[in-house]
Amino acid sequence: MGDLYLYNGPIERGSDLKFIELVASQQSEKQCVLILVTGGGSPDAAYKIGRYLQSRYDSVKVLISGLCKSAGTLLAIAADELIFTPYGELGPLDVQMAKEDRLLGYESGLNISEAFLALEQRAKGTYHDLVSEIVTSSSNVVSFNTASHAATEIISALYGPIFHRIDPEEVGSRSRAMRIGEDYGQRLNGKWQNLKNGAIEKISQSYPSHGFVIDIGEAQTLFQRVRAATPDEIKLVEGMGRATRFPQQTLAIRKIEPAKKQGEDGENHDAKVEKGGPPRRRAAARNGADSGKAVEG
Rank of each mutant, 00 (worst) to 15 (best):
K196V: 05
K196S: 10
N197G: 08
N197E: 14
N197T: 06
N197P: 14
N197F: 08
G198S: 00
G198H: 07
A199S: 15
A199K: 07
E201F: 11
E201T: 15
E201I: 12
E201R: 11
K202W: 04
K202M: 10
K202A: 06
S204Y: 02
S204H: 02
S204P: 03
S204G: 08
S204K: 09
S204N: 14
Q205I: 09
S206D: 08
S206F: 08
S206M: 13
Y207M: 09
Y207A: 03
Y207S: 06
P208I: 12
P208T: 09
P208Y: 10
S209F: 11
S209M: 12
H210V: 11
H210E: 07
F212T: 13
V213F: 02
V213N: 09
V213M: 14
V213G: 03
I214L: 05
I216R: 05
I216N: 00
G217H: 07
G217W: 03
E218Y: 04
E218S: 02
E218N: 09
E218M: 15
Q220Y: 01
T221S: 11
T221H: 04
T221R: 04
T221Q: 07
L222P: 04
L222Y: 02
L222V: 09
F223L: 05
Q224Y: 07
R225S: 15
R225D: 03
R227A: 01
R227L: 09
A228K: 03
A229E: 13
T230G: 08
T230E: 10
T230N: 07
T230W: 13
P231Y: 07
P231E: 01
D232E: 15
E233L: 00
K235V: 05
K235N: 01
L236W: 00
V237C: 02
V237G: 00
E238M: 03
E238C: 04
G239A: 05
G239C: 10
M240F: 11
R242V: 01
R245A: 08
R245Y: 09
F246E: 04
F246C: 14
P247R: 00
P247G: 10
Q249T: 08
T250V: 05
L251N: 00
L251M: 11
L251S: 09
L251Y: 04
A252P: 01
R254I: 05
R254W: 04
R254F: 06
R254A: 10
K255Q: 14
I256A: 12
I256Q: 02
I256Y: 12
E257N: 14
E257T: 15
P258Y: 10
A259G: 15
K260H: 08
K261V: 14
Q262E: 13
Q262Y: 12
G263L: 13
E264I: 13
E264A: 14
